[in-house]
Amino acid sequence: MSARGALLAREITLRARHGGWAIGAGLFMALGTLAPLAIGNEAELLATVGPGLLWIILGLSVFLGVEGLFEDDLASGAMEQFVLSPSGLAQAVLIKLVVAWGFLIVPLLIATPLLLVGYGSPLGGVLGLVLASPGLVFTAGTVSALSSGQRRGGPLLVFCTLPLIIPALVFGPQAGGGDLVPYLILGAYSLQAVAVCPFLASAAVRLQLT
């Protein structure tokens, strides 16, 4: 097995056992299901506000899902070993982010169409979620790396990440109409995050180590 394969298998096992992804997915489904109770059962209102509400809940779920993503490996000294390896720290961080994304998003891809149908909103929102989700997870994961080991790291994560996910919050709810622009912007948002965040997160981890 290659170093990359070993890291991937290790991370998948760790994420499966950690359970943070289940809390994020559970919050998304619970709030998404309960929200109509507070909004009311007026169909037109639900169809209008539903997508926006889902994107806010999605943001919260991502925060919960990536909180402490790097804590265990920093505390156990594993990150030091990744630094002292031919494959390098950035690859280990990239794999952690990709696996975190997979564990968070797969359950949401099942839940989102059901919730959108329930709200009477266009199903195109699912494609918007697919396009924006790497950007959301990689951005929040990077802030999670920065806030690792800090007291009250959770609130820090939320407040530091919120401004960075505004593009997804603005254009995400617009996805689902006939307009192509929101999809393009959400895709671009994710592309830049995937290109930049692994290096930023790995620099943040290095900072924690020193």
């Binding site: 070993a6 505390a75 156990s76 000294g77 070993q81 390896s85």
Partner: peptide
């Protein structure tokens, strides 16, 4: 990256994995 081992006061192992899983990871890594 290739010629230095550092074994600090922390083990560098994944606490949630078993001994066998950690060993398997290290051999693959």
């Amino acid at each position: 990256a290739h010629e230095v081992h550092y074994v600090g006061t922390e083990s560098g192992l994944a606490p949630r994995l078993t001994v066998a899983e950690n060993a398997e990871f290290l051999s693959g890594f």
